[in-house]
Simulated assay, not measured.
Amino acid sequence: MRTERAGRMADEVVGAQVRAVRASRGTSLRSLARSIGVSPATLSQIENGRTGLSVQRLKQIADAMDVGVADILDAVIPDPDDVVPPVGPVGPVGLIEPPAVPLPSDSSWRVYEPLEFDPVLRAALEEFLHIGYHGATVREIATRAGLSVSGIYHYYTSKQHMLLRLLEYTMDDLLRRAEAARREGKDPVERFSFLVEHLALFHTHRADLGFVGAAEKRSFDPVNERKIAALRTEQSQMVYDEVDAAVRAGRFTADMAHERARAIVTMCTALPTWWRANGTYSPEQIAEQYVAFALDLMGHRRS
């Protein structure tokens, strides 16, 4: 009897997690049912824990919503009795959006203020750094944030949502600073130099975000992975465009210019794997060194 009761409880939990993920993605019950070839009534039975859910069926549901099975099993189930004070406008699926993180003005791309994440996002970042995305649990993140597990639902639907928000902030900050640095340059070589300086400064001052971004890029579901990858490509393309312009102007003379530029970008993005705030060099010293390395690697010819 106890085993049967435990099985029903497990079905109810997983069913509620399916429902939470479906709601967070704005997918209707009828649409998901059609995608997996069952009636809406059957899917409703699954979501309410009245029908057992096989591993195969769970995988089918995950594929239909373009998420991983782990994302469903990590989903936070809302507790209607757990009330959290509002912190922002209510989103399209009833979630309270976390406070916006301030981004730097165009004139301050070299200035890095301390990060001001909301408690949940700060806790998620610390947990991902401590044990990695796949090792982290929503319960431990909730403990770090000083909230109940169900309380986190009012902010984020799952670990995946937290990781996405962290990387969205990272890329917004990175690209905004890159655009400001590029506008400050007066010619292709100076713009290239400022972009390399920016990448080195970002990946030292924001080493924690850079490390999570590099280490967990394969932890995204396919949709989020493509979104973040496109933003990374946008940043790299800025560097490549200035390299092309400098080559056309005869200012960069090394062969295989694109391959060298790719190596320079990778050199900068790898900084979080070894640079430490209490180490030998400050972010500004690293940036100065890396600009010199990059210009030498491109065969820079002074005008």
Rank of each mutant, 00 (worst) to 15 (best):
R2S: 15
T3P: 03
R5N: 12
R5L: 15
A6G: 04
A10S: 14
V13W: 04
G15E: 09
Q17F: 14
Q17I: 13
R19G: 05
R19M: 05
R22K: 09
G26K: 08
L29R: 07
S31Y: 03
R34V: 14
V38H: 00
A41D: 11
L43C: 06
L43M: 09
E47D: 05
L53V: 14
R57A: 12
Q60S: 13
A62G: 11
D63W: 04
V67E: 01
P80A: 05
V83T: 13
V84G: 02
P85K: 06
V93S: 12
P98E: 10
P102D: 01
P102K: 02
P104L: 02
R110G: 02
P114H: 00
D118F: 14
D118V: 15
L121A: 12
E127T: 09
H134E: 14
A136T: 03
R144W: 03
G146W: 06
Y153I: 09
Y156N: 02
Y156E: 01
L167K: 03
L167N: 14
Y169G: 11
Y169S: 10
D172W: 13
E184P: 08
K186W: 09
H198C: 15
A200Y: 05
T204K: 00
R218Y: 06
E225A: 14
K227N: 06
A229R: 10
Q235G: 04
V239W: 05
E242P: 15
A246K: 06
R248N: 10
A249I: 01
G250H: 01
M256A: 08
M256R: 15
A257D: 04
L271V: 04
W274V: 03
N278P: 00
E284W: 08
Y290H: 11
A292D: 06
A294L: 02
L295F: 02
L297P: 12
